[in-house]
């Protein structure tokens, strides 16, 4: 290290801060969204189609299933909350994929932005995407089927936060892989979350699963959330123990995937992958 003072070369004042860098990255994704109506339409399209489909299934089951008849919103709530998880993960991962599509990663990582700041910015971008897609579907559900998920009240906020956290954890794991394999792993962004769908107890209780797989459901946060949602809808009250279980598991997942991401970033630096992020 040199002990000599650095030359006063910089006439442009530089006031970098983590908040400013995160804001700049968030702005990058906001610019992308606001300039592309097909992207916004796509965000609204799938959650709405899903909600409409499950709304009609609900109407049918309300007349043929005593379980669904107990709480008319149980299936629609399931689909809307699942959509928050799915869109949370997808929004996070797609925002990262945008950097790969535009071969921008090499530019980004020579700016002062830290990997964790990029992750926080991607979380922000994911929140916006979920906000546009899932909120539109939820509002339409109240118009079309007379069911408002917002009637869940404060527990909805707890469910939302935990589902987003798990979605981001899965998203971080996916981008850790993408850093290593580039766009060759692109399909993971869409597929990987469905691995946990069968054991997430979205539309049925965990006890409906075969014994040999029930334990796996309780190892992942979504099962606690969807069980908690049913508990509220069936009038059995808000289960704090399940919220705590989901939160602790989410924290454990976050720690694990953050370690994976940082390791993957260092491997990418060692192998020169940050400059070669195409297919």
């Amino acid at each position: 290290m040199t002990a000599e003072p650095l030359p006063p070369a910089v006439a442009v004042r530089s006031r970098g801060s983590a908040r400013r860098r995160i804001g700049a990255m968030f702005m990058r994704h906001w610019f992308l969204l606001r300039g592309s109506w097909p992207r916004i339409l796509e965000l609204i399209y799938w959650p709405t189609i899903q909600m409409v489909l499950w709304g009609f299934i609900t109407l049918h089951f309300q007349q043929n299933s005593s379980w669904v008849a107990q709480a008319g919103g149980v299936l629609i709530s399931g689909v809307l909350l699942w959509d928050i998880l799915f869109r949370g993960q997808l929004g996070f991962t797609i925002s990262f994929l945008e950097e790969l599509y535009s071969r921008n990663l090499g530019q980004l990582f020579v700016t002062p932005i830290r990997p964790w700041e990029l992750v926080v910015a991607l979380m922000g971008a994911s929140l916006v995407r979920v906000g546009i897609g899932s909120t539109s579907a939820a509002i339409l559900a109240s118009f079309i089927f007379g069911y408002s998920i917002f009637d869940l009240g404060l527990p909805l906020a707890a469910f939302f936060l935990n589902l987003m956290m798990f979605g981001w954890a899965v998203g971080i794991a996916v981008i850790a892989v993408l850093l290593r394999v580039g766009l060759g792993g692109e399909s993971l962004a869409w597929l990987v979350i469905f691995l946990v769908a069968p054991v997430s107890a979205i539309y049925f209780p965990v006890e409906a699963l075969p014994d040999w797989i029930e334990w796996l459901a309780w190892c992942l946060p979504p099962a606690y959330i969807f069980e908690g949602m049913r508990s509220v809808l069936f009038g059995q009250g808000f289960r704090w123990d399940w919220l705590l279980g989901a939160t602790l598991l989410n924290i454990a997942c976050m720690v694990a995937v953050t370690a994976l991401f940082l390791w993957s970033f260092e491997v990418a630096r060692r192998q020169g992958l940050l400059l070669r992020t195409g297919e």
Partner: peptide
């Protein structure tokens, strides 16, 4: 927009 984003990343006033 690109320059605004990078201006923010570099902390340019």
């Amino acid at each position: 927009e690109n320059l605004a984003v990078y201006g923010g990343l570099y902390g340019v006033d």
